[in-house]
Design a protein around this nucleic acid. Sequence first.
RNA 1: GCAGACGUAGCCUAGCGGUUAAGGCCCCAGAUUGUGGUUCUGGUUAUCGUGGGUUCGAAUCCCAUCGUCUGCCCCA
Length: 385
Amino acid sequence: MQRPKNPPRGTYDLLPKDSEKWQMVEKLAKDIFQKASFQEIRTPIFEATEIFARAAGETSDIVNKEMYTFEDRSGRSITLRPEGTAGVVRAFLSNGLDRAPKPVKLWYQGPMFRYERSQTGRYRQFTQLGLEQFGSNSPEIEFEMISMAWNLFQKLEIENLTLEINSVGDKESREIYQKAMKEFLNDNLSQICPDCQKRAETNPLRALDCKVPEDQELYQSKAPKIQDYLNEDCKNHQDILLNLFKEFQMPYSLNQSLVRGLDYYTKTVFEIKTSDSKLGVQNTICAGGRYDGLVKELGGPETSAFGWALGMERLITLLNENSNESKLDYFVTYPVGKFNKAYKIVQDLRNQGYSVAVDYENSKDENKQFKIGQKLNAKEIITAN
RNA sequence: GCAGACGUAGCCUAGCGGUUAAGGCCCCAGAUUGUGGUUCUGGUUAUCGUGGGUUCGAAUCCCAUCGUCUGCCCCA
């Protein structure tokens, strides 16, 4: 057999060079989550297809063309999770966490699967790290959770980040706005791009972040603004959140064109974007929002909820190169036949907390042993004799 | 799903119709080095992504296919 050339399309191998970065990020994130009393949940990598179909919305692109869906041997329709929230909500309900003290605060990390064209910062198997909260309707918890993401990025010394906020309104106000957008698009059908003509039917709000400059100009100047359609409740909710950002000096911008790809969002939505060119057009590294209707949609009681997810691969590519500092403290060599003695030293050093490697080759040539140690970049090379 | 660019050893690159496909890094072996990345010598590794076609002759031209990248769609 020929040497394999690539892993399957849209996937990648995480090599030791980079896994260190992942571990570092994971450690920092876990620390932040733990301190804010969020607890980890691990849910299956696949779920019944229906879970995702209902959560993301039957008409969404994710459901219609991006899911890895298959029948298992008993004919059940199974789907590899394309995002984390639906599975967490399902687990929340399956395990009766809706009866636990509110809010229930959870975090998760794991691979997600979407059948898409791969690009920089976009894979078919990718990893999301996310937070979910069930039971609180308050803007304060949104503020805290967004701060946690922001805080993580600051600790990682990632620069050039912007926080964009918007509200998509609650069910009622969004429906009215959606209708207004649809009418607006239909009135201007001849001027807008083919994609937007489609969006007029399928997802009118999506037109707002159309890439065509002429369309953008039209929407900016003439399209109805979501902020004008928010009812008092949504408006107050947003004001409290924005005031908290001001109070705690978190820079944000209100972006009225910001909408989400999944149907379940209500009220607050946000994205954290980078202007770093390393990610090309995939510049959103963290996004989320409120989804007060989802738990009920999946068969649970009316439950307020808020969450976000960040793309680990995207985040990692923004990190600076890690230092070349050696991770290996000792390399232990020994004369022929003296392994036992050498290994006692090894154990001893490891018990003291050092990272230690041994020369298994047991080369007779001392000089060569030394060179092996050098190649491993050991801080100290010692010989047991 | 659409559009464009690109696939030469583990990695980076040369060759762009004509003898046994070239170099650097890495790797392996040996020597050198009075002691932590020296220097030298030798060696392994490529059916030039894959499959067809054009041609006396293809890594080089054409087609298909797979993969990568950039943009669109969509999205973390």
